[in-house]
């Protein structure tokens, strides 16, 4: 079955059963490994991607349901040599230890900042509360999102 979708701004054509998980399509067919398998149960957030700008658990999302829609993964935000302000802020704050949860968290933070450019600490906590981090980098992660929000607002007004 052929599925047409847009991934990180590019039109892609996937040949897979429509019930294949979006996570598997992104990783194994498109080579986008930044989206990670954590639980397969929508409980940890490691697999979060944006579908038309909304954060979605890709582990349990059937690929057929995103036909014709636009998917953004961590690779779509920026690469090592062209970092998105969020990625830069996470590095500036050294907001992570093992890093396994980070790409999903950055994706949810992106959705938040797109909607709420000047979020309160409580807004950020609410947006990230569906994500788990086992290393305990939470405080740094919250600071990183605040830092990125500042950068992005200043960037826009500058």
């Amino acid at each position: 079955m052929t599925i047409d979708l847009t991934v990180n701004g590019e039109r892609r054509q996937i040949d897979a059963p429509v019930t294949t998980s979006l996570l598997e399509v992104l990783r194994n067919q498109l080579g986008l490994f930044g989206t990670r398998y954590g639980c397969g149960l929508e409980q940890c957030g490691s697999c979060m991607v944006l579908v038309d700008g909304e954060p979605v658990y890709s582990c349990s999302r059937e690929a057929g349901t995103v036909a014709g829609r636009s998917v953004t993964t961590i690779e779509g935000l920026g690469r090592v040599d062209s970092l998105h302000p969020l990625q830069l802020a996470f590095l500036d704050e050294q907001a992570g230890q093992c890093g396994y949860c980070l790409s999903g968290i950055v994706i949810s933070a992106k959705a938040l900042l797109d909607r709420t450019p000047n979020p309160s600490r409580a807004d950020i906590v609410q947006a990230l509360d569906k994500h788990l981090c086992r290393c305990g980098a939470h405080q740094r992660i919250l600071r990183a999102v605040e830092r990125a929000a500042n950068t992005m607002r200043n960037g826009r007004t500058a």
Binding site: R27, N28, G31, L32, F33, G34, R36, Y37, I74, E75, L77, G78, R79, V80, L83, Q87, F90, L91, Q94, G96, C98, G99, Y100, L102, S103, V106
Partner: peptide
């Protein structure tokens, strides 16, 4: 010195783990 972690850039941009070797 508080040198930034050498391995962290990969972890906020894409493939970084044994899980990602295919």
């Amino acid at each position: 010195q508080s040198v930034p972690r050498l391995d962290l850039p990969a972890k906020v941009t894409g493939a970084a783990f044994v899980h990602d070797v295919l």
